[in-house]
Amino acid sequence: MKIQQEAMAGTLESSDLLVKVMPNQGIEIIINSDVNKQFGEQIFTVVRNTLQTLNLTDGLIIIDDKGALDCAIKARVQCAVLRGAVEQHSDWSQLL
């Protein structure tokens, strides 16, 4: 799966995050977080694992985190990637 167009999901409210995706060669992840010192590695791991589950091969992923839980990070990344990939036939079982 590749990101075909710019897309986003989420908000900049407290305890949420905004995920932006754009076309790119390869995968690049940029994380801006209020809690980066404490949880930056965990945020990166959740994003990377979610992208691997979705079989994403190309895309720029920009995360603006405001203290979101792992489940919110996963859901927002999934939503933004599916919007940006313009997939017509998604395997919904991957979204568990």
Score class of each variant (00 low, 15 high):
Ala7Val: 01
Phe39Gly: 01
Val47Trp: 07
Arg83Ser: 13
Pro23Ala: 01
Gly40Thr: 00
Trp92Gly: 10
Leu95Lys: 08
Cys79Pro: 07
Ile27Trp: 03
Gln42Lys: 11
Ser15Tyr: 13
Ile27Ala: 02
Asp70Ala: 10
Lys20Tyr: 06
Thr45Val: 05
Lys66Ala: 00
Val35Lys: 05
His89Gln: 13
Arg76Tyr: 05
Arg48Gly: 01
Ile62Gln: 13
Ser93Ile: 14
Gln52Ile: 04
Asp34Met: 04
Asp34Phe: 04
Gln38Asn: 08
Leu51Phe: 05
Val81Gln: 01
Gln5Trp: 07
Glu13Met: 15
Leu69Ser: 11
Ile62Asp: 03
Val21Pro: 00
Ile62Met: 12
Lys37Glu: 11
Cys71Gln: 06
Gln78Glu: 15
Leu18Ala: 06
Leu17Pro: 01
Lys2Trp: 05
Val19Pro: 01
Val19Thr: 06
His89Cys: 11
Glu41Cys: 04
Gln94Ile: 12
Ser15Thr: 13
Asn49Pro: 06
Met1Leu: 10
Leu60Gly: 05
Gln25Tyr: 12
Ala75Arg: 01
Leu96Met: 11
Met22Phe: 11
Asp58Glu: 12
Leu54Asp: 03
Asp91Arg: 14
Gln38Gly: 03
Gln25Asp: 14
Gly26Gln: 00
Phe44Asp: 07
Ala68Gln: 08
Ile73Phe: 03
Lys2Asp: 10
Ala72Tyr: 07
Gly40Gln: 00
Leu95Asn: 09
Leu82Phe: 06
